[in-house]
Amino acid sequence: MNYFIELFFSGLTRGAIYALIALGYTMVYGIIGLINFAHGEIYMIGAFTSFVVASVLSIYGFPLIAIVIMTGFAAAVWAGAYGYTIEKLAYKPLRHAPRLSPLISAIGMSILLQNYVLLAQTSDFLPFPKLIPDFPFMERYADVLGSSDLVILLTTTAVMILLTFLIKYTRIGKAMRATAQDTTMAMLVGINVNRIISITFVIGSALAAIGGLLIASHIGQINFYIGFIAGIKAFTAAVLGGIGSIPGAVLGSLVLGLTESFATGYVSSDYEDVFAFSLLVLILIFKPSGLLGKAVIKKV
C-alpha cells in the first residue's frame, strides 16, 4: 500500500511540473493558435538561470528560504524576458503569414536556444544545488512523500490558484479570455491585442521557469537538453487535456504524471514513455479534442 501511495505522490509531483510547463503551451495556443515549440527551452533557461542565481546567492551565504524565493523571482523575470523577446522576434512578424511559417520559426527558435546554452555553458550535466532541505516534520512520511515533492505540490497549487484568479477576475485576465475567443472583436472593444499576446508569453514563460527551478532542485542536475523532453511531455499533457484549455492542461498533466509514475513503478521504467504516448493516442482516438477541449470550432 505504501508503495502505491509513494507512486501516487511521485506521479502528482511529475504532473505538477508538467502542468507548470503545459500552461504556457495552452495559453499561447489559446490566444494565437501557435504551438510554441521553443517553450521547453524557456523551461531549460529557467533552470539555468536558477543555477546561476542560486550559486551566486549561496556564496554570499543568504538563508535557504531567501535564496529559493529570490532565485524563483529572478528565473521567472529572466525567462519572461526571453518569452517576450522570442514572440517579438520570431512570431509577431509572421502573424499574418501561412500557419506553417510561425511553426517552423518556433522549431528554429528552439534549436537556437538549445545550442546557445550548449555553447555558452557546457554539454555536461551540471550539479544543481539542493535548495529544498529535508524538513524534520516530514521524516515520518519520508518513504511516501519527500520534502521537495511537498514543496513542488504546494508551490504549484498556489501558482494555479493565483493564475485562476488572474484569468477569471482581473481586467487583464478578462482581456486575455476575450482575445482568445475573438481577436477581432477584442480589438474593436479597445484591447491592445499585441500587449495581451506579450503578457501571455511572459506569464507562460515565468511559470515554466518556476517549474525549471523546482525540478532542477528536485533532481539535482541540469543540462542544455532537459527542455526538449520536458517540453514534449508537457505538450503531450496539454493536448491530452485539450489544447487551449487551462483546466485541461492541469488535468492532462496530472493524468500523464500519474500514468508514467505507475507504469514505471509497476511495470518498468523502460516503458515510461511508451505508456505516456499510448495514453495520448488512446485519448485522441476516443476524444480527439482532448479531455476538456471543445470540439474545434473554426474561427471566422
Binding site: K174, A175, R177, Q181, G190, V300
Partner: peptide, 30 residues
C-alpha cells in the same frame, strides 16, 4: 484599433461577435 476606440469610435460588427464564453455581464464589462 484600440486608439480609435479610445477616440470614441465603436463598432458593432456584422454577425455580432459576442465573446461566447464570457458571461453577458463580462461581455458588457469588455
Amino acid at each position: 484599433p484600440d486608439r480609435i476606440v479610445k477616440m470614441g469610435i465603436c463598432q458593432v460588427p456584422e454577425g455580432r461577435h459576442i465573446f461566447p464564453e464570457l458571461s453577458v455581464r463580462e461581455n458588457l464589462d469588455m
